[in-house]
Design a protein around this nucleic acid. Structure first.
Lengths: 228, 228
DNA sequence: CCTACCGATCGGTAGG
DNA sequence: CCTACCGATCGGTAGG
């Protein structure tokens, strides 16, 4: 272990600190830690301001880096966007699979749809929900060769809905062409990104804002025929 | 009438044309004609590429102007965006009012909703439908002082839906909290901007794409309880 | 991961 | 409405 050279002792107190700017500790430095921090910041800013309106400098400084440093972790700005979408979809897909798996084997199609819708609202509007809205609303900024991978994840995510909606259609609880109905249902849910505001932590006394449970209940009642 | 000066006769044939670059004819020049052309081009490009990804130079050259000329008609790029939204909403509101007025006085709430939905799809997806999608998806690019006017028009547009949805809710044909249900219905419709592709002019023999009538039928079946 | 930097693009303007 | 132009910003890179 090399200690500070004796020369340091001859300098004024303020200069006793290690020279140059302070070294980062191991935890701050190494790791995909910094890469993950960049992803989270990018997701947040891309969602709040849009991809084009967010500069890589914004992302860097909000992550505590200098302007050139994001390019050490990502080849370019589009690659950062694609990574946000990819990680977001991977996480959403994992959550969705877990939500379905937790259902009892004899769960009804309606209960299955409820779980899917509830999970979807969570992924869109819950905590750490910046990734999927970015995916939904920043498609066009991807390079053509990046679209395929994200589309595959999105298709896998939507595939879980198909048998549930088919069953509901077969039993007469869901009306209208199933393909179009699915697109409209996703529209109804995804659009919530535009208007939903979570209720404040401390509930006010007046009219309260809707919770994700409220949204789920309303959606099921709106789309399905059987009252329940 | 002043004819070309005699000196012109002494110049080579090529120079007999009026000097300088050719004057525009009255029709090309004057008018809010050019202003309207800018609006239409801007709407189209803003929709196709997004506001931030469209430069004022893109708009100018697609309208047949030089790069500085849009600023003769609009104070800045945001003012052009606001004008697109304003004109789009004015037109949509006029069409909606006409569609409602054309209904027979004894039209049922379901028929009224059908007319509203059908008109909305027309405004979103029909010919000359670039303005409203821009309004829906480029909100955040407006300056704060521009938001009010557009919001007022949008509120007026949505106000026509409220009594119809209330009547449907009262008669049990529409379930779920009416405020949330309205937001979800608009989401289902507005999202079509993301995926709808009109059927080709010459109908193919295979599976055909949905028409706006198909969408309207599916939406009504999806949202309302009574089969009809 | 920082420093220093470059080339390109862009919104906007003066003056005609 | 065009010409000529400016200042600012931005994505990205070389070299350490």
């Amino acid at each position: 272990m090399t200690s500070a050279s004796p020369v340091d002792d001859m300098l004024p107190a303020a200069a006793v600190r290690p020279r140059g700017r302070p070294r980062k500790t191991a935890e701050e430095r190494d790791d995909g830690n910094r890469r993950l921090a960049l992803l989270a910041t990018a997701a947040r800013l891309f969602r709040q301001q849009g991809f084009d309106a967010t500069s890589t400098r914004d992302i860097a400084s909000a992550t505590g880096m200098r302007s050139g440093s994001p390019f050490y972790h990502f080849e370019n700005k589009q690659a950062l966007l694609a990574a946000v979408m990819r990680e977001g979809m991977r996480s959403a897909l994992a959550r969705q699979t877990a939500a379905i798996t937790l259902l009892p084997a004899q769960a009804t199609p309606r209960e299955r749809l409820s779980a899917l819708v509830r999970n979807h609202f969570e992924v869109l509007l819950g905590p750490d929900s910046d990734f999927i809205p970015v995916m939904l609303y920043e498609w066009r900024r991807l390079a053509p060769e990046q679209v395929g991978e994200v589309t595959a994840l999105k298709d896998a995510y939507e595939a879980a809905w198909v048998p549930v909606l088919s069953a509901l259609h077969a039993s007469g609880q869901l009306a209208g062409d199933p393909v179009l109905a699915r697109l409209m249902i996703f529209g109804a849910l995804n659009w919530a990104v535009q208007w939903y505001q979570p209720p404040p932590a401390r509930a006010g006394r007046g009219r309260h804002r809707a919770t994700l449970d409220d949204l789920t209940t309303t959606a099921l009642r709106l789309f399905l025929k059987d009252p329940e």
